[in-house]
Design a protein around this nucleic acid. Sequence first.
DNA 1: GAAGAATCGATACATTGTATCGTTCGATGC
DNA 2: GCATCGAACGATACAATGTATCGATTCTTC
Lengths: 240, 240
Amino acid sequence: MSKNASSMPWERPEPRPRPAPVPLSRDAIVRTAIVLADAEGLSAVTLRNVATALGAGPMRLYGYIATKEDLLALMIDAVYAEMLAEKETPADEWRLQIATLACALRGAAFRHPWFIALLGGRPHQGPNALAFTEAMLAAVADAPGLDGIDAIFQAAKVIGAYVLGAVRDETAEAVAVLESEMTKAEWQAENWPYMQRMIATGRFPMLARVISEMDHPTPEAVFYEGLECVLDGIARRSPN
Amino acid sequence: MSKNASSMPWERPEPRPRPAPVPLSRDAIVRTAIVLADAEGLSAVTLRNVATALGAGPMRLYGYIATKEDLLALMIDAVYAEMLAEKETPADEWRLQIATLACALRGAAFRHPWFIALLGGRPHQGPNALAFTEAMLAAVADAPGLDGIDAIFQAAKVIGAYVLGAVRDETAEAVAVLESEMTKAEWQAENWPYMQRMIATGRFPMLARVISEMDHPTPEAVFYEGLECVLDGIARRSPN
DNA sequence: GAAGAATCGATACATTGTATCGTTCGATGC
DNA sequence: GCATCGAACGATACAATGTATCGATTCTTC
């Protein structure tokens, strides 16, 4: 208690008026949440943290989002918007179109390692997610020989499954680093003795070869090689 | 306070000795956690819930697992063990071997919808996970024309990406039902008006076709058709 | 039997989404 | 301009969760 304070109500100075609340918007909330997630992982996206970063009280966020789950859905759609913005010039050839979309998704996932983990539930139907799906279907529809929406859908499903699966695998390390305090090197150093013991059992000869013989190609090369493989499969199964 | 109770310490009856603690084991803890997750989703797997289901206090679990994260890792490895047990008779032909492994994984994911969601971080190196990976690499190594560990690894990566991506997509609904209180029909009923509005914009012609024209093949057919597609792609890119 | 270690159940703590409450501010009507 | 009411805001509270800590009981050793 400072020397000017008094416990007598009639002697207390009146408080300064409370400052005008900082302006908020849904966009600002979502962007702030994304910045937090990119920097520290999804666990850093708490309503308190987002509100603090915006200079507001946490309960104010409920004027813009109904639940935290809404916030996460809006974050997802914002990332889809980024992908669409990147996919600027439409390529002519169907394989290139698909590769462009896949590239946009992969890039977004590296900028926002938490993105893929959020895609596990019900379909995302934000306007940008729908637009991205539409773009993918349109690209696949250009593949020769796909007769009818069922074949198009099937092919799009395969591509989507591969791309999301591969990118999830690729970004897993980035996710792990964000959420824990352990770098890849530290984790490997910690786990290597166990792996050595397992290899020494002789039960994992292929894994032993992977560990000792592999050139370890760049992840990007692996991804695009895999995509080409999938697209080859689609082309081969088309009736013509 | 019952009529026999007294606040005088020297008059109080001594309590009965505490009952012998129920025996615990790591296996029992993991199995109980799996049963809870299968029934109510991952959010039901709290240490308190697991301990309660086992008739023990929550802190006892820490004698068997160091962290909750350990419990989740053990759950993952237990599911891999199931897959290995299922993959009993080794098939001769490489495509059939791979399809058998994919089938085992898909089956496990449907029994345990939470499984795939847990695979997002660092590589899982439990003994059964390693054995499963080994089996997949061995199956892919049987594919003709894959020359060297790099090509084998690349092919295994593509297959794994597709399978996990596709199964994740397929099981998403089961996950959503477990974690929310909303069935698929309820969710669709809630979201249909929005979807109608979006389709009415005319910006999503392919999606409109999917919704109005698709036969909706069985998910299983879609999965295996996709796998065949990927395996075709791999066969096509082999040098011979 | 006594002492110390191990085990157990109970309690506590920090954190998080969100409900609730008290206070301040803004809008409206007179 | 003043009084009243509704909206907005910040503060507080609550239930839940992983896990630290504490007090009590049981087991082991000498």
